[in-house]
Design a protein around this nucleic acid. Structure first.
Lengths: 218, 218
DNA sequence: GTCAAGTTGCTTGTATACAATGTCTCCACG
DNA sequence: CGTGGAGACATTGTATACAAGCAACTTGAC
């Protein structure tokens, strides 16, 4: 499947916005971007519209598009929704999960733990993502799975900041173990409860992190 | 705020797809639509891309866009997610809801019941939508509220089909009362449980309806 | 000196022209 | 008679030209 240029530009712009290349509230000029990517305005406009639907930019008619970095409140809210969605996935998965998926969860968790020991951040994130993706899939609800993947992807850059918190990773792995154990025993409510806390704490930790990084901001 | 042409066209196309004007799998020709709306291809393309992000149409590169009517399985899944999302809203709202909102819920419910008696379907749906919107809002999570409104809007046309089921509306109102009662007493888990069933049953009823309407289909 | 109105310039929204690509058909060859 | 390839056609993707609208600046009057 060959993607059209507008798609790769949308991904690139998304990456740039999430990386902080563009400041919050900054206006994205169509012609500048067109020149930057060596394309015409049309693909740029398509890309910007896609970003607008993801709420990464705000489109003001006849004024332009402005990048919309989610503020602390919005982030907390998004993490709260993510936690609830994952809790639903876990609850449903507890009764629907296959033995193969359980084995996969165990293996993924092992690789995840190993990467923590090895301080291999990239592998950690890849395996961590895989862990959660398996649970989404095992909810047995393809629509739910898609929604979870979408939100997970949007929150990903903010999860990365947690690397700086000492001891968080080890605690996180312990939670993963507890989740798998609950799933294995078919205890849906418990799995939901554990994973809800596991995800929600990320939002709270992020909050703390933000507060400590820019104490005088806002 | 004056919307641009592409926006109203997107809404119009969305309405047409949901109304069944376009069959599932039908290709939407850009030039035909352009002629139909008396605009150029550009606004049509923008509208189609918006619909593609809502999964109402599928965009195949170099092939065109095809309407994607959600099948029975996908619908069941969407209703399941809707039920879970509303359950989360109710649980959160139970501890955050204001007295004013509670009064509003009571009033809305009263109007809803009255419209059932008067067999005023339009009023019923408007008030029913308001009822659920209040709960979304009272979750205290603006992001969650937006997501709920999005999904609710997508499922709306399928909810309408339930009018044909005798006695469903009265049952539905009884459930509304139970939800309000749980919220008023601050019983989050109970409110969540009731509203989950209230929404999930719609998916199941819909399933029955589909099966009874086209028994030999598929 | 200040306020207001007109004009200019820049930006977005729309239309059309062009390019690239996929598909379908038709003809030739095995 | 079937199959494969080449070419034409149709459709999407991209570029550019044009129109419309808003904002800011300048200029003139009070």
């Amino acid at each position: 499947m060959d993607r059209k240029r507008a798609d790769v530009i949308a991904d690139e712009l998304e990456r740039m916005i999430l990386d902080g290349t563009f400041a919050d509230g900054e206006r994205l000029d169509e012609v500048q971007l067109a020149a930057r990517f060596s394309v015409s305005r049309t693909p740029i406009r398509e890309a910007l519209q896609r970003l607008a639907q993801s709420r990464l930019v705000e489109q003001v008619p006849r004024r332009g598009v402005f990048v919309h970095q989610p503020g602390p409140v919005e982030l907390i809210e998004m993490f709260e929704v993510m936690a609830e969605l994952e809790a639903v996935c876990a609850r449903l998965a507890a009764s629907r999960i296959t033995d193969a998926a359980l084995a996969d969860l165990h293996a993924t968790n092992a690789r995840c733990t190993a990467s923590v020991e090895a301080q291999d951040a990239d592998t950690y994130f890849r395996e961590n993502e895989r862990f959660h993706a398996i649970i989404y899939r095992q909810s047995g609800n393809a629509f739910l799975e898609q929604e979870c993947l979408r939100l997970h992807r949007r929150l990903q850059p903010f999860r990365r900041m947690q690397l700086r918190l000492r001891g968080r990773l080890r605690q996180s792995m312990t939670e993963h173990e507890a989740i798998v154990a609950a799933l294995q025993s078919g205890d849906g409510p418990r799995a939901a409860e554990v994973i809800r806390g596991h995800v929600a704490v990320q939002g709270e930790k992020f909050h703390l992190l933000m507060a400590s990084l820019k104490p005088a901001a806002e």
